[in-house]
């Protein structure tokens, strides 16, 4: 269950964003996760409240965008989706493929509530 450690790292990054932008609280956090990152989106969602408790992100909504695995075939150049344990070209079935998506574990966006009304 390393998703708790991942959430703790996420909260540290979000706290930095909150400090830098004088946020009074975090409204939402958007992350993108691919199956090849080794992180399970559902476990991430379960672990998140434990890591967020008592922090500036305590009531923030966690949005996990899952990114499918995609491979590019070196033989036929096709770009297709693949399962994590079957990284084969979906077009010609060759295993000489490069992974072009599905490895990411990224913090994409943080929605904050700032301390004051903006000055116009």
């Amino acid at each position: 269950m390393h998703e708790l450690a991942v959430c703790q790292a996420l909260i540290e990054q979000v706290e930095r964003v909150a400090r830098d932008n004088a946020a009074r609280r975090i409204v939402s956090i958007t992350v993108s996760v691919g199956p090849l990152s080794g992180v399970e989106p559902q476990l991430l969602e379960h672990a998140y409240p434990l890591a967020a408790a008592g922090t500036v992100a305590e009531v923030a909504r966690l949005v996990v965008v899952t990114v499918p695995v995609r491979v590019r075939c070196r033989a036929c150049k096709a770009e297709t989706e693949a399962a994590s344990n079957r990284l084969l070209c979906g077009s010609c079935n060759d295993w000489h493929v490069d992974v072009i998506a599905g490895e990411e574990m990224l913090l994409q966006r943080v929605e904050i509530e700032t301390a004051d009304e903006p000055v116009h």
């Binding site: 990054q13 932008n21 946020a23 574990m105 966006r109 929605e111 509530e113 700032t114």
Partner: peptide, 15 residues
């Protein structure tokens, strides 16, 4: 306060 959306795009395990 007003709501602001900030694009970050960093690896979660950056540290």
């Amino acid at each position: 306060g007003h709501i602001e959306s900030i694009e970050v795009i960093t690896a979660i395990l950056d540290e």
